[in-house]
Simulated assay, not measured.
Amino acid sequence: MKKLILIVGLILGLILGETDAQAGELAERLSEFPNWTHKPMVKVAEGDLFYPEWMEGEWDVTSTLVDKVAPLAPQISTPGFEKNSTFMNQPIEFKVRFKTVQLLPKLQIFPLTLFFTQEGSEQHADGKIYPKIVSDRAFNGFNMGRAILGENGILSVKVDPTNPNRLITALPGNLELVSTVTGRSREIPSEDQFIASEISQQVFESSSQIYFNEVETTTAYKAELDAPVKSIVGDQVTAVYLSPQDPNFFTASGHPVALYRYKLKLVQKQ
């Protein structure tokens, strides 16, 4: 189960949705790791993430777990936290893809004026279709899951066709992990930097049990524009929070019960 949380943390770090955060809030949060005492300020997740243009294409990713903390241990710990020590400083490699999609602007009616708008873009009054960069989430999730669990450890990853914020992972043994993004925020400190955070609700279901929790993934990406091969480096933290169904929910009082920090390296395929 804990491996699945690691998978979803990685997946969500590459499919975040879009809502602007106050300048510097997320960058400051990453700099304060591991002294996190609450979730970040986010807004309700709507729509999809529009990534910077420099993230378009297919990438070879190396993700390395470099730190892990259980802030409330030994009083409260999550299943498998200690076992995850086997992942420490062990690079995991997989492929991800970011693609261009064509989106129609939304129509909003104001007194005497019509505006066509699209979340994450400027207002448009011409009704044109505008290209955006988004994550190929099913492709990315499947590749990441297989890299961690093995070629036979994951059956499929699908995006709910009725809800782009709902990711469904099917596993052997009639097991299923459903992750639904509920809140997001982002920052763009400069033209070569992109920071985003999201909160997701997770449900792991088997024939004998259902396990709930919440996961935050906050990631800072930086494009290496002058590198010989186009590449991106990332600093990512996945924080696990107890769900209201957990008997220790009130004892945790909103604090994360597990923190995992990763270093990411994305190199574009030639």
Score class of each variant (00 low, 15 high):
Lys99Val: 11
Leu155Ile: 10
Phe204Arg: 04
Leu171Cys: 05
Glu46His: 11
Tyr241His: 13
Gly234Tyr: 01
Leu225His: 11
Phe142Asn: 04
Pro111Asn: 11
Lys269Ile: 13
Gly145Trp: 00
Val257Tyr: 03
Arg166Leu: 08
Thr117His: 03
Gly80Phe: 06
Gly254Asn: 07
Ala23Leu: 12
Val159Pro: 02
Met144Asn: 04
Ser206Trp: 07
Glu214Ala: 09
Phe94Glu: 03
Pro74Leu: 08
Glu205Met: 03
Leu266Gln: 02
Glu176Tyr: 04
Tyr51Ile: 00
Glu18Met: 14
Pro74Thr: 07
Ser121Arg: 12
Gly153Gln: 06
Asn140Lys: 02
Phe110Ala: 13
Gln123Asn: 14
Asn35Ala: 15
Asp67Leu: 10
Leu6Ala: 12
Asn165Leu: 08
Glu176Val: 15
Leu30Asp: 01
Glu25Ala: 15
Ile154Tyr: 00
Lys3Tyr: 09
Arg186Phe: 15
Thr64Tyr: 13
Leu16Ser: 05
Trp54Asn: 01
Arg146Asn: 02
Lys43Trp: 11
Ser63Ala: 15
Ala125Ile: 11
Gln193Lys: 15
Tyr241Leu: 14
Tyr262Val: 03
Ala258Pro: 01
Trp36Asn: 08
Val257Met: 04
Pro111Val: 09
Thr162Gly: 15
Pro161Met: 15
Leu259Glu: 02
Leu175Met: 13
Gly150Asn: 06
Phe115Gly: 13
Gly24Pro: 02
Pro105Phe: 06
Val134Met: 07
Arg29Gln: 15
Glu93Met: 11
